[in-house]
Structures are given as C-alpha cells and as structure tokens.
Amino acid sequence: MSVRSEPLVGSARPARRAASLGVWLDRQSVFSWLMMTPPLLFLAALVGYPFCYGILLSLQDRPVAHIGTFVGLKNFMTDFKDAIFWRVTLNTFVYTAIATVLKMVGGLALALAMNQQFPMKNLVRALMLLPFIVPTVLSTVAWMWILDPAFSVFNWFLIALGVPKPGPSWLGNPLLAMGSIIVINTWRGLPFYGITLLAGLQTVPPELYEAATIDGAGGWQRFRYVTLPLLQPIILIVTLFSVIFTFADFQLVYVLTHGGPQNATQLFATYAFDIAMGAGQLGLGASVALTMLPALALLIVALTIYLRRG
C-alpha cells in the first residue's frame, strides 16, 4: 500500500499544480495581458522608443557622429527664425489643402460614376485601384519620366499643338512643380476615396431614392438631400485619414523634386530629412519633424473621438 501510494501522491501534486496553472492562465485578465504583451512590447520598441528619442533629439544640439548637448528649445527657436521653415509650413498647408479638396471632389465623382451598372464593372474597379496599390516610389519614377524636362510626353503634345519649343518646365518652375506634386498626390489618393465612398454609396437604401423621386426630387436634389447626408460620416473619416497621410507625405516629394526648385515643394517631412540627414543636424531635423506633431495630434484626437462615438 504505502509503496504504491508514494508515487501516486508524487504524481498527483504536479498534475494539480498544472491544472491550477491552466485555470490561472484561463482567467480573463491574465490571458488578455499575456496576449497583449507581445504587441505592446513591439509597439513600445518600434513606435514608442523612436518617438521619445525624437523628442530627446529635438532638445539637443546633435551633429552626426558627435555626442549631443542639451540646448532646451533652441532648435525650435532656430526653426521659427528660419524663413525657409515658414515657406515649408506654407507649402505643407497648401499641398494638403488643395490635394485633399481635389481628392474629395474627384473621389466622390469617381464613386458616383462607378456606382452604375456597366459591363466589366469589377475589372474596371480593380484597375482603378492600381495607383493606390503600386508602391509610391515606383509610380513617382514613372511620373518623373512623364514630366521629364527634355522628354516629357505632355510637352511633346504641347509642342505639336504649337507651344514654343522647350515647353513648360513641370518640375523646374516653382508654381508648376507644386502643381505637379499636388496632381500626382491626387492621382495616387483618388482610388482610396473612390473605393471607400463607393462602399458607402452601396449602403444607401434604394427605397430612399424612390421615395425622393415620388416626392418630386430631381437628380441634383436626390444627391443633395439623400446621398450627401448619408455619406457624410464616411466622407469625414476618409478625409481625416487622407489629411494625416498627405500632411506627413515624404516619398512622392523626395523622389520627384527633392523639395526643389529652391524649396518651392519642400514639405515638413522632406525638410526635416534634409536637415537631419543631408546637413547632418539631427537635433534641428528632429525639431522640424516634431513641429508637425500638434496639427497631426489634433487630427488624430478628432478622428479617435469621432470613431468612438460612431
């Protein structure tokens, strides 16, 4: 008896401990924390740490390959006294505002056009998404060649139509360069608006249009009093997302114009990169990048509040 009971007791104890560990792991609070820890650590390492390091850098005089010295808000003071910084601020706001309006209006038109019945509808919808799916750097290189100073296809047509010889310098003239990056940003962002608004359009119940028609509403009135109010929440969310991405845009401008000519297309992100990596002033560059933070933070808070309420 005692010989047989010894191993029994010995094996029962770890089993009970394993069972209680299982129960403990199964508790809602414990399990959710276990699951949350890896992503939280990941975010802390790859989002939190660079963000805090950026703030630290912005308060330092930190040339590349030197140890930084704490200078307080001096970098920000330098920014605010810098004429180019204000040019960059203006550029970023102009770029974001015009591109967003173009994308909103164009995207709504695109969604309305695509919401009709026609052959090969799904193929056309898929093709329409291409500009948004293809990596920005790739499509921007294509645009670079389309707008090339010597071999632009647009200029070939303009010259064929009788415009004097070299034709407009799309990326060399400050105004045209700004116009070009706005148009290309619109080209790239339009499908995002179009597809999202199309999804919104398809949730509008057809009975509402029928009722409006019976009440004598014309096409414009159906759009104004049925479509638009029902789409409004989606338009708002898409616009907030789009403003956030456009405001902090980097790739397009960096590849196409490098911020030139004479900083005419320089945005916050490209200017920060130029100062930090080009001129080697890491601290000053970080301070330029951080001046984007208040505007973006406001937008993100607005978006979060709106999404939580809805």
Binding site: A109, L110, L112, A113, M114, N115, Q116, F118, V124, L127, M128, L130, P131, V134, S139, A142, W143, I146, W187, L190, P191, G194, Y209, E210, T213, G219
Partner: peptide, 29 residues
Amino acid sequence: MVTGHGPIERLVRLWLPVGFFLVLALFPF
C-alpha cells in the same frame, strides 16, 4: 440609378466619366 436609359445620356453619365478616370489612373502604367 433611376434615369439614364438613352444612349446619349448613358454616354454622358457613365462612359465619359468612367473613361476619364480610367485613362487618368492607367496612363502612367
């Protein structure tokens, strides 16, 4: 939608805008 059955109306409401957006989206490719 409710209207848009005549060939000219269909051209203006459907094919012109869809064609415009398709050319715009695909020309760089």
